[in-house]
Amino acid sequence: MNAMPEAIASDAAVFSPAGDVVIDCNLSKVFYGDFLAVRNSSVPIEKGKITGFIGPSGCGKSTVLRSLNRMNDLIPIFRFEGHVKYHGQDIYGKKVDPVVVRRYIGMVFQQPNPFSMSIYDNVAFGLRLNRFKGDMDERVQRALERAAIWKEVKDKLKNSGLSLSGGQQQRLCIARAIATEPDVLLMDEPCSALDPIATRQIEELMLELKESYTVALVTHNMQQATRVADTTAFFGVDISQGGRTGYLVEMGVTRQIFEDPQEELTKQYVAGEFS
């Protein structure tokens, strides 16, 4: 494998999807303190589709994903230029409460992070938060079933979520995130700790979710991107300015990205020539 070729600092042609755009994300610059982490990335998330994010480690996939529901607000040194609009409304607008944004745009994190409470309470957490008034047990069961973990935990719902294995914890977090059925679900490498069977089940879940919701998915697994993503955004790292700045190299319909990439960098990446 070669080192990553020096990127040509050209801007990718802006991709505009055929259908409705739920999140119109245009990040011209994202900083952590003085460090320019991401630049010139316009990533529209299409309604009812799965948008995949691929690219080498450290290129800013998580950064971009987390700016879609204002999770980066927790990092004091984060700041950005550009806009993120959800159904046409700027989510970073002065009057917008990030709490509300995160209720509509849910998230599954790269690291499993269940709460120190029972498995049941973990899944019911979001439902209680949103003052859900229906059959809680049924919702919890359904979320656990969809996250492909029900069979493993159905006899120990009272046990702590932290008593599960890493992969089980990750699926529990997926169940927790989908229990409230958020409008958009952001998933940051949800399958990195899972075995092939559980991975397939989560992929089926994503395909099922996109019937009524929208999914954005970060993955290092190219097969996964080709299996589930409708649209794929490929990010690269630009080292020409001294730092390591991530940027969107190319975005398009998944098949086009993998079979007929327009950029040299994309071609090399999907062929596995650098990582």
Binding site: L74, V101, R102, F109, N113, P114, S116, G126, L129, R176
Partner: peptide, 20 residues
């Protein structure tokens, strides 16, 4: 990551503190 998980679920600050 626990704090992140709490805010990721859409908790307010006090909900994050009291419930998580």
């Amino acid at each position: 990551k626990v704090k992140e998980a709490a805010f990721g679920m859409g908790t307010t600050r006090w909900e994050a503190i009291l419930k998580v």
